[in-house]
Write a protein that binds this DNA or RNA. Structure first.
Length: 621
RNA sequence: GGGGGCGUGGUGAAGCUGGAGUUCACGCCGGCCUGUCAAGCCGGAGGUCGCGGGUUCGAGUCCCGUCGCCCCCGCCA
């Protein structure tokens, strides 16, 4: 680019300067000698060159103010037509978000015109020269944090959205987080190793993102759900301490904290157990939090077993920033005549409740809670309000004895005005429903406080609605005892753990199986036949036979972590180019149809019904 | 797969009980203005009320369907 030299035109835009004529002597490189947001009183008297974007223009007819923004921040540029008529003339042609360069003198602002809102507000740059590097069309939305722009529109113009201070700050935070992770991992002697992104599909857990092979038509790669098996192979390979900032892909429905592709800090270590993992990871969490929040966390983080988390909070990722714990009310209703409670207790269920505290709630809000509980799978929800006179108002009060009502309020520590929510159902349903209501009712907004927590001793299997068992973790997780896993699968515990902050699952990990015989047994208990295990994981099981060290590891969700630390409500705000809930990118119009030839090369034919549904769609030629 | 919320000039909103595309702020275009800082003042342009159907003399408004975005349940080993 010919900026600052050559003729006085850049892409047809005239340059204004104080030499009184156009096309005058050029100005030598570099384009920029200072950063806008960094200028301070101590810079007064400096001749600087700045380059950036027009944040706002304030044209007083005479003097013209331009807020010049670059990645470092904003500084006010003053163009004075008396001192500099050519620059002023050009300045009048400037519009929002033009990319410009300015040369001039940094000076203290006149008394009374200092802007305390701006870090650079004590100074301004008196423009001697202004040059348009690149003009801008009128914007689809304002570059401003204060506007709440439709997200589709933001994604369509993500490059403009990223100019907003909030998004720019999130990019910086993300970069700092990765930096702190690398620094901490390197200091601990970890080796950064990258692993393939075209891998073997192992239909297990999440849906794979598939990539068709051209050279082997009909065969598919998968994008990795995580580098799980590769990092274990690195342990077999003698790496001992591995980490990677890894991109992972899971083709499941989107949520506010889930995207089809996301980033993890992935670590693995040999001769490690859980304690080794925690000891290596806590400094990383501390460093990232220090970097992004300026907060020094206390270690070690508290721990809680999965069973305790479920019992007290109804979830495997408890938010410890508030109480409202789930209280078992079995004792209070031990001999109750109230059919709903008695029935639940008799059939192996439980009665439990939470004290939502004193709050004014209308009947419609209470009905909303009942609907929510039903939506979550409970048969119903009983609400009780402790009245000013100590009596209990509830739709079921007449079915309960005064002793029972007293026992409930006592068990829940209820005082005047408190709202109590009670569920009677199977234990798991009861706890998860109350756990969800607890979050609905008690969760603090934002993430100003941080409550980290290790959740340990996950069960090997989770019990489904129908009583069926589903593995809670990937099949390479070591159980405490294989025999228990086989003989009493419902109660078997695994050497798996999660890291939780403020009710958000930040990541999970486990001690791995390093004995091929145990691995085979685990496959068998999981219902994976020898033959199936061989075809899907044979290559991996073979590796385990060559002196595999005991090892363990973890993966931290980078996007979620930054989301929490930046106090963002969803993961998209901390991802540079995220997709919508339906996996669509409005900016690039992706995913898109491909042309017939591309499909042919891959040996792929679209199903007739799919073809049919696409009729009328614009197709590539 | 299911439930809910939202969809109105370029942006953000209001639009009540169905009565003229009405209103507000920002942006845009033009003009004025020499110390503002989301500058100010005057004037102007700009909309198939997501799309389709229905009810009605009449629909942004009511009903049905559909599409898109967001949130939740399922799903996410």
């Amino acid at each position: 680019m010919g900026a600052w030299r050559g003729a006085g035109e850049v892409d047809g835009y005239r340059r204004g300067s104080d030499d009184g004529h156009r096309g005058g002597r050029g100005v030598a490189a570099p384009l920029r000698t200072a950063r806008a947001g960094e200028l301070r009183e101590s810079d007064a008297g400096r001749e600087v060159r700045l380059a950036g974007w027009v944040a706002t223009i304030r044209d007083h007819g005479g003097v013209l103010f331009v807020d010049l923004r670059d990645a470092s921040g904003i500084v006010q540029v003053v163009v004075d037509p008396v001192l500099n008529p050519a620059a002023a003339e050009l300045g009048r042609e400037l519009r929002d978000e033009f990319c410009i360069a300015v040369g001039g003198l940094v000076r203290q602002r006149p008394p009374g015109t200092v802007n305390p809102e701006l870090p650079s507000g004590a100074v301004e740059v008196a423009a001697a020269e202004v040059m348009v590097l690149s003009p801008s069309d009128p914007l689809p939305f304002r570059i401003d944090d204060r506007a709440d722009v439709d997200e589709n529109r933001r994604l369509e113009y993500r490059y403009l959205d990223l100019r907003r201070p909030r998004m720019a700050a999130n990019l910086v935070a993300r970069s700092k987080a990765i930096g702190a992770m690398r620094t901490t991992m390197l200091a601990q002697g970890f080796l950064e190793v990258d692993t393939p992104t075209l891998v073997k599909s192992t239909p297990e857990g999440a849906r794979d993102v598939l990539v068709p092979s051209r050279l082997r038509q009909g065969s598919f790669y998968a994008l990795p759900q995580s580098p799980q098996l590769f990092k274990q192979l690195l342990m077999v390979g003698g790496v001992e301490r591995y980490y990677q900032i890894a991109r992972c892909y899971r083709d499941e429905d989107f949520r506010s904290d889930r995207q089809i592709e996301f980033t993890q800090l992935d670590i693995e270590g040999s001769f490690w157990d859980r304690e080794g993992v925690f000891a290596a990871l806590e400094p990383v969490i501390v460093a990232v939090t220090r970097e992004l929040r300026g907060v020094e966390l206390t270690t070690p983080f508290p721990r809680m077993t999965h069973a305790e988390a479920m019992r007290r909070f109804g979830t495997d990722k408890p938010d410890l920033r508030f109480g409202m714990e789930i209280v078992d009310l079995g004792e209070a209703f031990a001999g109750t005549g109230f059919q709903m409670f008695a029935g639940a207790l008799a059939s192996g269920g439980i009665v439990a409740g939470i004290n939502a505290g004193a709050r004014e709630v209308s009947r419609s809000v209470l009905d909303g809670f009942v609907e929510r509980a039903k939506g979550l799978g409970a048969k119903g929800l009983v609400w009780m309000v402790v009245e000013a006179d100590g009596s209990v108002r509830s739709p079921v009060a007449k079915h309960l004895t005064p002793e029972e009502l007293a026992a409930v309020t006592r068990a829940l520590g209820a005082g005047r005005g408190d709202l109590l929510l009670v569920v009677a159902d199977r234990p798991k349903v009861t706890r998860t429903v109350l756990g969800a209501l607890r979050i609905d009712l008690g969760r603090p907004t934002g993430h100003d406080r941080l409550e980290f927590l290790w959740v340990i001793d996950f069960p090997v299997f989770s019990v489904g609605e129908d009583g069926s068992l589903a593995p809670e973790h990937h099949p390479f997780t070591a159980p405490y005892r294989v025999e228990e896993m086989r003989d009493d699968p419902e109660h078997a515990l695994s050497r798996a753990y999660d890291l939780v902050v403020n009710g958000v699952e930040l990541g999970s990990g486990s001690e791995r199986i390093h004995d091929p015989r145990v691995q085979r047994e685990v496959f068998s208990v999981l219902g994976i036949s020898d033959r199936e295990a061989e075809s899907r994981f044979g290559w991996f099981m073979r590796a385990l036979r060559y002196g595999t060290p005991p090892h363990a590891g973890f993966a931290v969700g980078l996007d979620r972590f930054v989301m929490v630390l930046q106090n963002e409500p969803n993961i998209r705000e901390v991802m540079p180019f995220p997709k919508t809930q339906t996996g669509y990118d409005p900016m690039t119009d992706s995913p898109s149809l491909v042309d017939e030839f591309q499909l042919q090369e891959l040996g792929i034919d679209l199903r007739p019904d799919v073809r049919e549904s696409l009729a009328g769609e614009p197709t590539p030629t």
